[in-house]
Design a protein around this nucleic acid. Structure first.
Lengths: 246, 246
DNA sequence: AGGTCAACTTGATCCTGATCAAGGAAGCGC
DNA sequence: GCGCTTCCTTGATCAGGATCAAGTTGACCT
């Protein structure tokens, strides 16, 4: 996700967050960030914020996965973002949460009170610039996901999600994605369905179908092995190179 | 779209652009923007940029409509954004276009060479801050659209698009959306289909259906009259208040 | 007027994914 | 062990939208 190297020890106990926002920043900025931060943890399934809530902090994901989602009155739900470690929650300059934020797995986030963070942003333009860069990345990701939602078949959708998860999993442990890699599925079938605009039954069926055609191998229900990465990417319908970055 | 009042005469011949980026800025910033800008025009259907193209400028839409879209090898197309007057094209800090940009109607854009614009951004933090704000708005819009693509029925999709177009049309002429308003459809059925993740036949059928149930009245093929705005919004499946802002 | 073309409408049929329904597997407390 | 719950799988059927296929409309040209 974030290419910038930054020695994590210098950042104290919240390395990822600092790497995300303060890349290349000077140490006094780091210290000022240290002063205003605190941690929160949530269990899988717990809400972090409801749409419309007052947000008194911005945060970054340290560990675990959170989701951004919207629900219609009749219960139809669409996940609009998956927040993995190093992703940013909240928006300077905005007071209310636009979407529900829910802990998908056990979750630790590193929070910064919004007011001081905003003050820091105006006094340190680099932070704002970095945030703009991150937001533009997220916007591109959201738009790429619109192709998935609007035009892909169920099978292509599943393959797209798996290939994203595989790549992000690899990059979190700083490896290149490779053949024969395996990773843990952090989402229930229902959460996958909500992300992909499908039902959980269809998700289950398509995973079974990919398994049957040998594109993936399941170890238990939540562990996926990808014997041939290119075969999986083939199933996404994307052209080889471009590829989703989420 | 943009709530900030700014006397357009002060901005020379490109008022919207300046209002979008330079809101509340001082006059010397305006002058510096004047120095590096130029205009381009395109006819309906012409491409502005292909995905992967080098971008040597950023721009804002002055008149007409442009689309952002992605196409798969087999020809499936998904529009991922609709750019109306005052919307921004391009991204400081990025060299290649991530999506195709096409003129949907006759189009005028106001361009700024990227290098000087970026220089201006670092020397004038307010511009960066404004751009961050706009990008966050676009991100929210993109995420709201994901609900439309992933979970809404064809009829709800059409109603959602019409209600957005109605509202943006009203706001462009600085009126509150009201009952009995009518507006021009700037998109072909095919373009609507590409935006909504449908086929053009389904779009046509659902428009006919909405007409038959009296939610809209067609005058010719491209002019829509909305006798009762609330009835249209009802059809979107959204709750009354929140509502899509695109 | 007639011809041409693009945009649109409408009908018939098919198929993907939703829905309804039942049952299996793993974890956990007692 | 047993019951209980949550998550997942699989089957049968249904329906919404895609696809294929004609027509229609209207703008523009000569």
């Amino acid at each position: 996700m974030n290419e910038i190297a930054f020695d994590s020890r210098e950042c104290g106990s919240c390395p990822i967050r600092h790497r995300a926002v303060c890349a290349r920043c000077e140490s006094d900025e780091l210290e000022r960030l240290e002063e205003i931060k605190f941690y929160r943890t949530y269990e899988a399934g717990q809400p972090v914020l409801w749409a419309g809530d007052q947000m008194e902090f911005v945060a970054s994901v340290v560990q675990g996965i959170a989701s951004l989602s919207q629900t219609m009155e009749d219960g139809r739900t669409q996940m609009v973002g998956l927040l993995l470690p190093s992703d940013f929650i909240g928006r300077p300059g905005r007071d209310f949460a636009p979407f529900d934020v829910v802990a998908v797995s056990d979750l630790t986030i590193c929070c910064f009170r919004k007011k001081p963070f905003e003050a820091l942003m105006t006094s340190t333009p680099r932070i704002g610039a970095r945030l703009l860069e991150m937001t533009l990345d997220e916007l591109d990701s959201a738009r790429e996901w619109m192709l998935v939602l609007g035009r892909k078949t169920a099978r292509e959708k599943i393959a797209s999600l798996l290939s994203i998860l595989a790549r992000r999993d690899a990059s979190l442990r700083k490896q290149a994605p490779r053949d024969g890699m395996s990773f843990e599925l952090p989402l229930t079938r229902e959460a996958m369905a909500d992300y992909l605009g499908l039902t959980l039954e269809t998700v289950s069926r398509q995973i079974s179908a990919l398994k049957k055609s040998g594109v993936i191998v399941l170890e238990g229900k939540r562990k996926v092995l990808v014997p041939d990465l290119e075969a999986l990417i083939d199933e996404t319908g994307d052209d080889m190179d471009g590829g989703l970055i989420v």
